[in-house]
């Protein structure tokens, strides 16, 4: 082993934590601006001398109907997590346990589709939504989010399923279970950690969406990520309301992240790497 000097140890700790604090300052600013009066924000939210704290901005933002936007986010991101997980888990198991013609081609296409920009589908989708009466309905956007979640979730789950020993399936087959039965009764319970990873990443991802929200829904049905833009002004911003809405918008994904950080990290690094 190489011996570490005290000086080295102190230096890298200072550097690491300075970067950490630097990365936290923006978030600190967001919170401070949301709980202090406008005048104190303008003269510097980082000045803590004579600071006054207020929840008025939060009350104003909720009065302007932002609670509805948060609720929309919960509904959209919630269902846009459950539905694709149900569907992609099944398909991932199909890919794992069967071998069929064009399988490799199909799988490759699936992987390639992962990178498609949302703008590549929006024009035909709008026409489709108009024709099918899906425009401005939350289940419409939930279906679109679900479809976009499939490529990476199938890929991620298939990789996990491949690591499950075949013995489990063999035993179940002797008991007379079909593939669907094996998936739901044997594979799914074993795969729970992987399912949670996928769920956390997908929930946070769906919560962040802006483009599908503003194009497929009218403002009254916008989730918080889109609804917050009504508080923005490039030249004359009301910092208090703007930042209060910002804090409210990140509250749910932040809690999910803090509670399930380990799963989130696995989902992010594993989903893309495979």
């Amino acid at each position: 082993m190489v011996k570490v000097s005290m000086k080295y140890k102190v230096t890298i700790n200072i550097v690491a934590w300075m970067i950490g604090i630097l990365l936290l300052i923006p978030l600190f600013g967001l919170v401070m601006a949301s709980i202090r009066p406008f005048s104190e924000v303008v003269s510097g939210w980082w000045i803590l001398k004579n600071a006054h704290f207020t929840l008025e901005n939060y009350i104003d933002v909720l009065d302007r109907g932002f609670a509805r936007n948060i609720l929309n986010s919960i509904i959209i991101a919630g269902f846009a997590t459950i539905l694709p997980l149900l569907v992609s888990g099944m398909a991932a198991y199909g890919f794992t346990s069967f071998s069929f013609p064009v399988k490799t081609m199909l799988f490759l296409t699936l992987v390639a589709i992962q990178v498609v920009p949302q703008q590549a589908v929006i024009i035909p989708l709008l026409k489709l939504f108009r024709d099918l009466g899906l425009y401005n309905h939350m289940y419409g956007i939930i279906l679109v989010h679900s479809a976009f979640a499939l490529p990476w979730t199938i890929f991620f789950l298939r990789n996990f399923f491949m690591s499950i020993p075949k013995d489990y399936e063999e035993a179940a087959k002797i008991d007379g279970l079909g593939s669907v039965g094996i998936y739901f009764r044997i594979i799914l319970p074993i795969a729970l950690p992987a399912i949670i990873s996928v769920a956390v990443v997908q929930f946070i991802f769906a919560w962040q969406d802006l483009f599908f929200a503003i194009t497929l829904l009218r403002p009254e049905n916008w989730p918080a990520s889109a609804g917050i833009t009504k508080f923005v002004s490039r030249y004359n911003p009301n910092w208090g309301q703007l930042t209060a809405a910002g804090v409210l918008t990140i509250l749910v994904p932040l809690l999910v992240y803090v509670a399930l950080q380990k799963y989130y990290m696995k989902g992010v690094s594993g989903g893309i790497k495979g």
Binding site: G20, L23, L24, I25, P26, L27, G29, L30, A33, W45, I204, W207, Q208, D209, L210, A224, S225, A226, I228, T229, V232, P237, W239, L242, T243, A245, G246, T249, I250, P253, L254, Y257, V258, Q261, Y264, M265, V268
Partner: peptide, 21 residues
Amino acid sequence: GIVMLGMVMPLTVVGIVWMLL
């Protein structure tokens, strides 16, 4: 955990944060 925080937030909020800064 800190370095991942920016990734968890919607980009519209990231935008608001940087408008403030």
